[in-house]
């Protein structure tokens, strides 16, 4: 399942929903991305996205994970709008019968999302606003 939302998410509730009724699951791995202020320069982070394409890309990322690993369930939740340091940004989760597939798929979901899903971060701080540059 994929979701794009302004509201925060509760990791415990998300995992409960993911595993409910799926007794073949033996391993669940989650990744949570949060707003970082490593150097006292970020007071807020605003996430912009491309409605429509975002959902298509996230669905493509999820489908690719299911094509590569034997997964019972996956989840991607990504927030948009204004966030503050410490806030949740993104959750990816992968559930499988065994841990190897769950670890690898959870990592794949976030790595692939970061290169393909149309989100852009703008940081606000004492020095003003700036768009975050993509990692090379």
């Amino acid at each position: 399942m994929i979701r794009v939302q302004r509201d925060d998410f509760d990791i415990g509730k998300e995992i409960d929903a993911l595993r409910k009724g799926r007794t073949g699951i033996g391993a669940i791995v989650t990744f949570t991305g949060t707003v970082r202020d490593a150097h006292g320069e970020v007071t807020a982070m605003t996430l912009e996205h491309y409605p429509g394409m975002t959902e298509k890309e996230l669905a493509r990322v999820e489908a690719e994970a299911h094509a590569r690993w034997p997964l019972q369930a996956t989840l991607i939740v990504h927030r948009v709008g204004r966030l503050e340091p410490g806030d949740n940004i993104v959750l990816t989760a992968a559930a499988s019968a065994h841990r190897e597939a769950a670890f690898e798929a959870a990592r794949f979901l976030i790595d692939y999302l970061k290169t393909s899903a149309p989100f852009w971060k703008r940081e606000s701080g004492p020095a003003g606003d700036k768009w975050v540059e993509a990692a090379p």
């Binding site: 970061k114 899903a117 149309p118 989100f119 971060k121």
Partner: peptide, 10 residues
């Protein structure tokens, strides 16, 4: 058709 910088989500 959309134009944008390299994506920075996640």
């Amino acid at each position: 058709i959309a134009f944008f910088p390299p994506v920075t989500g996640g």
